[in-house]
Amino acid sequence: MINVKAIVYDRYGSPDVLRNEEVETPAPGDRDVLVHVHATSVTPTDAIFRSGRVVSARMFTGPLRPRRRTLGGEISGQVVAVGKGVTKFKVGDRVFADTGSALGAHAEYVRISEDGALAIAPAGLDHRETVAVLDGMLTALPFLRDGARLREGQEILINGASGTVGAAAVQLAKHHVGARVTGVCSTAKREMVESLGADEVIDYAKADFTRGGRTYDVIFDAAGKSSFSRCRRALRPGGIYLTTTPSLTIFLRSLWTRGFGGKRAAIMFTGLRPDGDKATDLRLLAELAEAKTIRPVIDGVYPLAEAAEAHRRVDSGRKQGCVLLTTEQNGVPDPTAEGH
């Protein structure tokens, strides 16, 4: 085995804390596969973990310094080695995966259990498109299906419809579920949200959707910029408000509205779901992507070594869709080759 490249950080801060460093190639265990990562995403969660500014996030990443030196959770790549007990995958398989709490995706090679959140990649998409389909969809899908229990013909408003999770939610709600979708975004991103299938788009700079008199079965705050208190008047009886942003307020509202009142508030921690559930959703997303029910939305692609620039783009708040890292221009060495 030889050393390969990974993006590492040893302290919290700006994107400048990220370094492109040689690390030891992960060695697959008996039930593991080794994946050559062709593309991976840089998400707002990665930026939060890197910055260390969110105190609650440090409960996961480490109170004083990062416990895991390499960020990233979503990959698309090719299996280059398998453990002796692996039966579900073989060398050469194109796969996509979520590494979960292990992180480590911002690297040339990643080790993942065959029983992890791992599946055969959708046919007809390249690695960049594949990881872009994964980014956001694996969050939006359980929010809509399990949290909102969204049904055909219902009306949903998606706040932050141009972000990664919001754009995924627009597509799933419209094309997979068959709901009527209203998206909320800026003027500059209106056209993109309409192209994803939104029936109506509200420019948040020109109108306050909570005061327009319209009501919805579901309000999904994918941007975390509103609140249940503000949105309650825009919910129909029995409607539900969901947010991706944790806070003490939403925890309390979720508990209270579960037993009282006809309108509910809820939050979900989709990243903490069992790997088996995620793997099932990956297979569903592959089917939807192959059927062109959903499509990737890519803001920009950066070489792995330019991870800091990718983080700056995420930090800017101006991205439309996914920000990706790729190793495809790196001339990545094969750590399984003879002599290494």
Rank of each mutant, 00 (worst) to 15 (best):
R214D: 14
R214Q: 12
R214S: 12
T215Y: 03
T215H: 11
T215V: 13
T215F: 08
T215I: 12
T215D: 10
Y216D: 03
Y216W: 15
Y216K: 07
D217P: 12
D217E: 14
D217K: 02
D217N: 09
D217T: 12
V218Q: 08
V218N: 01
V218M: 06
I219G: 10
I219E: 06
I219S: 11
I219Y: 01
I219R: 13
I219D: 03
I219N: 08
I219K: 01
I219A: 09
I219Q: 07
I219M: 10
F220D: 05
F220T: 00
D221T: 09
D221F: 03
D221I: 11
A222V: 13
A222C: 12
A222G: 10
A223I: 09
G224F: 12
G224E: 08
G224R: 07
G224I: 09
G224D: 13
G224N: 05
G224Y: 01
K225H: 14
K225I: 04
K225V: 15
K225L: 15
K225W: 00
S226L: 11
S226T: 15
S226P: 05
S227R: 05
S227M: 07
S227E: 09
S227G: 10
S227H: 11
F228Y: 13
F228S: 02
F228E: 08
F228D: 02
F228Q: 02
F228W: 11
S229A: 15
S229L: 14
S229C: 07
S229V: 11
S229F: 14
R230G: 12
R230F: 02
R230D: 09
R230Q: 15
R230H: 15
C231N: 13
C231H: 01
C231Y: 02
C231S: 15
C231I: 10
C231A: 15
R232E: 15
R232D: 08
R232C: 10
R233Y: 01
R233A: 15
R233W: 04
R233K: 12
R233C: 06
R233I: 07
A234Q: 01
A234K: 06
A234W: 00
A234L: 06
L235S: 03
L235Y: 06
R236K: 15
R236F: 07
R236I: 13
R236P: 01
P237C: 13
P237F: 09
P237E: 13
P237L: 14
P237A: 15
G238D: 11
G238R: 14
G238K: 07
G238S: 14
G239S: 02
G239A: 12
I240L: 11
I240R: 08
I240E: 01
I240G: 00
I240F: 01
I240H: 04
I240T: 12
I240C: 09
I240N: 04
I240M: 09
Y241E: 06
Y241V: 05
L242K: 04
T243Y: 04
T243L: 04
T243Q: 02
T243H: 00
T245N: 04
T245L: 06
T245A: 04
T245Y: 04
T245D: 03
P246T: 11
P246I: 10
S247H: 07
L248R: 15
L248H: 07
L248M: 14
L248F: 13
